[in-house]
Amino acid sequence: MGFKLLSKLLVYLTASIMAIASPLAFSVDSSGEYPTVSEIPVGEVRLYQIADGVWSHIATQSFDGAVYPSNGLIVRDGDELLLIDTAWGAKNTAALLAEIEKQIGLPVTRAVSTHFHDDRVGGVDVLRAAGVATYASPSTRRLAEVEGNEIPTHSLEGLSSSGDAVRFGPVELFYPGAAHSTDNLIVYVPSASVLYGGCAIYELSRTSAGNVADADLAEWPTSIERIQQHYPEAQFVIPGHGLPGGLDLLKHTTNVVKAHTNRSVVE
């Protein structure tokens, strides 16, 4: 069995187990497998329904001669939608809004960016022009300005110390501490036991640490421990890039980060 097929099978099995364990909360999309990078042309966006009122959005972007996937989250909030992270750029984010209108038909009224990198804030200006209120932590807003990236308009308070959590509509926002970046936030959907790890969490097929220019490698494993301790009931975990899975993604990420750190020390 090929690795790609095995990865998709694991996603399907995880979703099936969740649907059985929580039949009222989960209505997993039966329309197909989780979209992969090879299936999404740059400039297009796919939506994948995880649970009743919960979707991931998947886009792709060219970077350094390669094409990478990027995940975000959409959560229903009454007759409105909360968006977590842009679709990595203005063109993708405009396509995301169009796809949401086509498939869901509810307005996106608020959006949260989970850290300051372009795959999370690139497209904020498109959201703002569409009347979406954009939010991020003060740290993310400051770092985005320093980096020359787009800056969300509103500040999220109460997320300055490791372990801080605040309720934001249908989700809980959690600051686990520094990891992929010093400002990275985690998003949890309690009604569906869905954990969105953003770039602080890796997919299972990833074996290298990737972009760690703004990471705190020493603190990252401790931050992941905080996530595990705060959300032990999480059933569906979405990484910032690639295929979702279960809580095993947290341990896998820790292993990859520690291996990278150990290699760096040896070198």
Rank of each mutant, 00 (worst) to 15 (best):
V166F: 09
T253E: 01
S31V: 00
G245Y: 05
I227P: 01
G131H: 03
T261L: 14
I104E: 10
L97E: 05
V189D: 12
G148R: 10
V126E: 07
R128H: 13
S30E: 09
D119Q: 01
M1C: 07
S31W: 07
A215M: 05
Y34A: 13
Y188G: 08
V11S: 13
A192R: 11
P239H: 01
S31N: 03
G177V: 00
T222R: 09
V112E: 01
N255I: 15
T182A: 05
P23V: 09
V166R: 04
T86F: 02
A200F: 01
F3H: 04
V257S: 06
R263T: 12
D77Y: 07
R141T: 04
P239T: 13
V171K: 00
A98R: 09
G2L: 13
F116Y: 15
V194H: 02
D164S: 08
I104D: 00
D118R: 05
D183H: 02
T36L: 05
V266F: 12
I40Q: 06
L106V: 09
H180R: 00
L47T: 14
S193Y: 14
E267Q: 12
G210C: 14
R141W: 12
A192V: 08
Q49L: 08
N211K: 09
R120Q: 10
T254A: 08
G78P: 06
H154G: 10
E147M: 13
K8W: 05
E101Y: 07
H115G: 03
G198Q: 01
T222E: 07
Y202N: 02
Q229I: 04
T222Q: 13
A15Y: 15
T86C: 12
S27V: 06
E44W: 11
A87Y: 01
G240P: 02
V11Y: 06
Q61L: 05
V42A: 10
A133K: 15
V45R: 13
A21Y: 07
A144M: 15
A129P: 07
S22K: 10
W220F: 15
L81I: 12
A165D: 13
Y135K: 01
V187R: 00
T207N: 15
A179P: 00
I17A: 05
G245K: 04
V75P: 00
T14D: 11
H252Y: 03
M18H: 02
P69S: 10
I104W: 13
C199E: 00
S7V: 10
G242E: 02
A218L: 12
L6S: 12
Q229F: 15
G53F: 06
G105V: 13
P35W: 11
V45C: 07
L24N: 05
E225Q: 04
L9K: 08
N255H: 03
D118V: 05
G2C: 14
V189A: 10
H241K: 01
V124C: 08
I151G: 10
S22G: 09
D216P: 14
S162A: 11
A90T: 07
V37K: 07
G148V: 05
A98E: 11
N184Y: 00
I100K: 02
D214E: 08
H154F: 14
N262G: 07
K251R: 06
A218V: 05
V212G: 12
K258P: 13
A179D: 00
V42H: 13
A215L: 10
P152V: 10
Y202G: 08
G122L: 15
L47G: 01
G177L: 01
V112Y: 15
S160K: 10
Y135C: 02
Y196W: 02
G43F: 15
V75Y: 04
T36R: 07
L243M: 03
R46F: 15
T114W: 00
P41Y: 04
M1H: 12
S22D: 13
E33F: 13
G89R: 12
D52V: 06
Y34I: 14
D85C: 00
A179F: 00
K8M: 12
E267G: 12
I40F: 02
Q49D: 04
S113H: 15
Q235E: 05
S205M: 13
G240N: 02
V124N: 06
A259S: 08
Y34Q: 07
F174I: 14
N184A: 14
V126F: 10
M18V: 10
Y188D: 02
L13A: 10
G122P: 02
E147R: 11
R167F: 14
E99A: 14
P23Y: 06
L73A: 07
K8Q: 03
H241E: 00
T261S: 06
R128P: 02
V212W: 10
N255P: 08
E225S: 04
R206L: 10
G197T: 04
G89C: 07
L96N: 08
Y34S: 12
G242V: 01
P35Y: 04
S139C: 15
G246E: 06
H115V: 00
V187C: 04
D64Y: 13
S139L: 10
P176Y: 00
V146A: 09
M1G: 06
D77K: 05
G122K: 13
H154L: 09
H117D: 00
L159R: 01
A144C: 12
S113D: 02
R76T: 06
S31F: 01
V45G: 11
W55R: 02
E39V: 07
E219I: 02
S191V: 05
I50M: 11
I50W: 13
H57G: 11
I224V: 10
L83K: 01
T109S: 14
G163D: 09
G197W: 00
G198V: 01
S161L: 05
Y68P: 04
G72P: 00
A59W: 02
Y196E: 00
S161D: 09
A259W: 07
S7M: 15
V166L: 09
T222S: 12
P41V: 09
T140V: 10
A130S: 15
G240V: 01
V37A: 08
G148T: 14
V237A: 08
V54M: 14
P190W: 03
A215V: 10
V212R: 08
N184K: 01
L195E: 02
F3R: 11
L127E: 01
Y12A: 14
E172G: 11
E233S: 09
V189G: 02
A234F: 14
S155Q: 05
S56C: 12
L156Y: 03
V45T: 06
W88M: 11
C199R: 01
S191F: 14
G245M: 08
L204T: 06
V42N: 15
T182F: 07
L13Y: 02
V121C: 15
E172Y: 05
T222P: 07
N211Q: 04
E233P: 14
T182Q: 06
L24Y: 14
S38F: 10
K4L: 02
D85N: 08
P41R: 07
V126A: 09
G169M: 03
G242P: 01
P35S: 05
V112G: 02
F3S: 13
L6W: 06
D125H: 15
E101Q: 08
A129C: 14
N211C: 11
A200I: 14
V187I: 08
K91C: 03
R46Y: 15
S70P: 01
A144N: 13
N149M: 15
A213V: 12
D164M: 08
E33C: 07
F236V: 11
T36P: 03
I84A: 11
I104S: 03
